[in-house]
């Protein structure tokens, strides 16, 4: 009998090519502010922040099984803490942006203590209620300008080119960072736990995996990511106001992107963000009709194509650009081949 050994592999030939291509794309994106028009980098800022936000929501829903409808809370916190750090404490804006993530993460811990008591759908509404509470709190503090909000003056007073370039690179860092962090998290032990939780929570718990800890990780990381991305968005928008900053629209956008692209994959949210962005650019002047179209699209995809567009691609062609699943390869036998592939998507 031939002795057999099983080795665990992550990468495939496709994924190695994808990695190389991604590196080139990122390198080109870094240089954009030097040669492109300002309008182009402004457009790219909103696309990149969409990708970052969608990755965060996908980490929650697609991997940790936490359907949050309250991520707008952390975007608002990011926006307001940017104002607090720069205008009140005089921190340099670009330095303040990463710090806002810690604000969001710090607030997400006690929040998790509350909402994690709720299951499934009630968790979703619970996160929504928490975001509403954040909004109400901010709107009722006179120092933050109450309902009419504040302009982030120290950012507004910066030279336009400096602000635009800084914002652009920070947005790029958010998008790339979000992808890298989610990718790294999923390939670490906690990622395996998360994927297992998504598939069968009680079974995983009985195997001694710390379900609570893994979910908490995902929740806090997502809060951090939404906080930082929120502050980058407001580097661009400059005016913070409770209603738009804490608007459910933010989460609605994240959900649409992830659902359209494909939940539970890293590629899905990127694809979804591109499609969403294209729709937004061409149709958003139609206001309500545009939103109705998005709603219909999301419902159709959820009901009849649960894997989203990327899920459909994966099912048909078995392509994984950013493989997070583990493949067991049998070596030593006559025909080495894939013997098992953990389910993805």
């Amino acid at each position: 009998m031939v002795s057999r050994q099983i080795t665990v592999h992550h990468s495939t030939a496709t994924s190695r090519v994808a990695l190389a291509v991604s590196a080139v794309v990122v390198a080109i994106l870094i240089t954009v502010p030097f040669w492109a028009e300002q309008r182009t980098s402004r457009t790219l800022v909103s696309l990149l922040t969409l990708i970052a936000l969608a990755q965060m929501w996908n980490l929650l829903a697609g991997y940790a099984g936490l359907v949050s409808v309250g991520q707008q809370g952390y975007i608002g916190i990011g926006a307001y803490s940017l104002w607090l750090l720069t205008d009140v404490f005089g921190v340099s804006p670009f330095l303040a942006v990463p710090m806002t993530g810690f604000f969001a993460a710090a607030i997400s811990l006690p929040t998790a203590g509350l909402v994690f008591r709720l299951k499934g759908g009630y968790f979703a509404i619970g996160t929504w209620v928490m975001a509403e509470l954040f909004r109400l709190a901010v709107a009722n503090i006179p120092q933050t300008g109450g309902g009419s909000g504040k302009t982030i003056t120290s950012v507004a007073q910066m030279a336009v080119t400096t602000r635009m370039r800084g914002t652009y690179w920070l947005a790029l860092a958010c998008a790339v960072g979000a992808i890298v962090v989610v990718y790294a998290l999923l390939r670490a032990r906690v990622g395996l736990a998360l994927t297992a939780i998504r598939d069968n929570e009680p079974a995983v718990e009985s195997l001694g995996v710390h379900v609570f800890r893994a979910k908490l990780w995902a929740y806090v990381v997502a809060a951090f990511g939404c906080g930082v991305t929120g502050s980058v968005i407001y580097l661009n928008l400059l005016r913070i106001q409770p209603d738009p900053s804490f608007s459910i629209q933010w989460t609605a956008i994240m959900i649409f992107i992830v659902v359209i692209g494909g939940v539970g994959t890293i590629e899905g949210p990127i694809l979804g963000a591109l499609i969403f962005f294209a729709l937004q650019e061409t149709l958003s002047q139609h206001g309500s009709w545009y939103l109705i179209l998005l709603g219909v699209l999301a419902v159709i995809i959820t009901v009849w194509f649960p894997g989203g567009l990327w899920g459909t691609v994966v099912r048909r062609w078995h392509i994984h650009l950013f493989p997070v699943q583990r493949r067991l390869l049998l070596t030593g036998s006559e025909e080495a081949g894939v013997v098992a592939e953990s389910q993805d998507a």
């Binding site: 829903a61 099984g65 359907v67 409808v69 499934g120 759908g121 979703a124 609605a252 959900i255 649409f256 659902v259 939940v263 309500s288 009709w289 939103l291 109705i292 998005l294 709603g295 219909v296 699209l297 999301a298 419902v299 959820t302 009901v303 649960p306």
Partner: peptide
Amino acid sequence: DMRPLLATFGLSVIIQN
């Protein structure tokens, strides 16, 4: 249990608008 949530969330957006 994510799918009904997402579907009804989409429905919420459709009805509101």
